[in-house]
């Protein structure tokens, strides 16, 4: 459907073929800005220590002039990866910290957010509109505004400086509720009524209709959630003192220029899961963005 409409607009708007190519080129050029950071990261990660030290001398304060760089290292080496993966146990701990927290948050959001989204999408109930508005407002409140209130409750529960302090509040984020709600609201109500007439209970309808038909919204919430929580910084910075509990996203900045090789390899490894999820879930990502913007 999208394709057909797109095609129609193309037909309507299109003037000449050559002009098309020109527009395409003009659009591609800035988007290439995306590739430059990745290219620098990858080349840096396979550069030897000595070579990096030479290129980065101005930043290290050892020389005048500017940074230099080579897109193809003189002596490509996997030494950085080897040292990071085999000789830095701390890196592994933080990698699995990140993985563990993201998984726990996403599973929790599934368990709590999907049913809530279904309640908003499939039922009429008193104060529905008020509660929905409350959820929207909470979705828009930045972390900093609720930082103190989160701290008070986490401190009261005695879970400050544990990973629960990151996972539990995130589970009750209202953002995934909206994205799932967007998916559920596409299910025709008549279908549910027909199932009810056939004697299906509400739980059965949720399991047999809501979950399979709302799969798009659910997956969208998961893709957006992964990218968000893999990049988590504000919460662990405020609520985790013990560095052994930190996620990967806070480890990287701790590396100094002198160990730039490490930093590049660690950055590439941090990037990989996010890129994987992005490539696998791009359609869901786009759908999720649109769902998040739907009005309740």
């Amino acid at each position: 459907m999208e394709y057909v409409v797109n095609h129609m607009i193309n037909r309507v708007l299109k003037k000449g073929k050559w002009k098309n190519g020109l527009v395409e080129a003009a659009l591609l050029l800035p988007s290439l800005l995306v590739c430059i950071p990745i290219l620098i990261l990858i080349t840096g990660s396979v550069m030897g220590r000595g070579e990096l030290a030479v290129y980065l001398r101005p930043v290290l304060g050892e020389a005048e002039g500017y940074i230099t760089w080579k897109l193809m290292p003189d002596y490509p080496t996997f030494a950085n990866y080897k040292r990071l993966l085999l000789e830095t146990p701390q890196f592994f701990v933080l990698f699995w910290n990140s993985m563990g927290m993201v998984t726990a948050i996403l599973l929790g959001q599934l368990a709590v957010g999907i049913p809530a989204a279904w309640a908003f999408a499939a039922y009429e109930f008193p104060f529905r509109r008020w509660i929905l508005t409350l959820y929207i407002v909470l979705m828009l409140l930045p972390f900093q505004v609720t930082m103190l209130s989160s701290y008070l409750v986490l401190d009261g529960m005695g879970i400050m400086n544990t990973q629960k302090a990151i996972v539990l509040p995130a589970i009750f984020s209202t953002f995934p509720v909206f994205v799932c709600y967007g998916g559920f609201s596409q299910i025709p109500k008549e279908m549910l009524d027909a199932a009810r007439i056939d004697g299906a209970g509400e739980w059965l309808i949720f399991m047999k209709f809501a979950l399979p038909l709302g799969k798009g919204g659910i997956l969208s919430a998961m893709v957006l959630g992964f990218l968000e929580y893999w990049n988590l910084m504000e919460q662990p910075l405020a609520f985790l003192e013990d560095k052994a509990l930190w996620p990967l996203s806070l480890y990287l900045p701790e590396i100094t220029w002198a160990q730039a090789g490490y930093a590049f390899a660690a950055s590439v490894i941090t990037l990989v899961p996010a890129v994987f999820v992005f490539l696998m879930g791009q359609d869901y990502l786009e759908r999720g963005i649109v769902y998040a913007g739907l009005k309740g």
Binding site: I36, P37, L56, V59, W230, L248, L250, L252, V277, L285
Partner: peptide, 24 residues
């Protein structure tokens, strides 16, 4: 291509940003 930066963890690009926008 335009969407991709959204997937890039901030921590992973911080070092590139420093290299790009450092005084030198």
């Amino acid at each position: 291509l335009y969407l991709f930066p959204m997937a890039m963890p901030t921590a992973a690009i911080a070092i590139v940003w420093k290299m790009l926008f450092y005084k030198q």
